[in-house]
Computed example of a mutant assay.
Amino acid sequence: MKNYVQPGENITLTAAAASSSGDGVLVGSLFGIAAGDAEIGDTLTIVTEGVFEMPKPATDVLAVGDPVYWDASGKLATADDDSGSNAEIGVAVTTAANPSSSVRVRLNG
């Protein structure tokens, strides 16, 4: 197929903010996990598919299959969509109780 470009699980873009490997990165409605470190203006590859262990607020409770959102200001996965302000990034694939500091998330891709 002549218009095919790439599979899409890894997207290379220009970093709008400094990022470290493993950080969540939200650009518009595109979310992924930084595959390496980057400073503003550097080339950055983000991984948009797969399951990642992500930090969350200790008080958030998530069950397997619950939607997970991205709190861009806190740089945390969260159960709270903040009245639509937080982008939905995937679903929980493990139970995360209160208190716990992380949850495994399957990204929406």
Results as ranks from 00 to 15, higher is better:
N3Y: 09
Y4P: 01
V5M: 08
V5R: 15
V5H: 11
G8V: 02
E9N: 14
E9R: 13
A16K: 15
A16T: 12
A17Q: 14
A17V: 06
S21Q: 12
S21G: 08
G22S: 10
D23V: 09
G24L: 13
V25R: 14
L26R: 14
V27M: 13
V27R: 15
L30C: 10
F31N: 10
A34M: 10
A34L: 09
G36D: 09
A38G: 13
A38P: 01
E39F: 07
I40Q: 15
L44A: 11
T45S: 11
T45Y: 02
V47W: 02
V47G: 06
V47R: 13
T48S: 07
T48F: 06
T48P: 02
G50S: 04
G50W: 05
V51Q: 14
F52C: 06
F52S: 03
T59W: 08
D60N: 11
D60Q: 04
D60S: 01
V61Q: 12
L62D: 09
L62E: 07
L62W: 09
V64I: 15
G65M: 02
Y69H: 05
Y69P: 02
Y69V: 03
W70E: 04
D71G: 01
A72G: 01
S73D: 09
T78M: 05
T78W: 06
T78Y: 02
D80C: 03
D81L: 01
D81C: 00
D82W: 00
S83H: 05
A87L: 12
A87H: 04
I89S: 03
A92T: 13
V93C: 12
T95R: 15
A96D: 05
A97P: 01
N98Y: 11
N98V: 01
P99Q: 11
S102I: 02
R106N: 10
L107C: 04
L107T: 09
N108Q: 11
N108E: 12
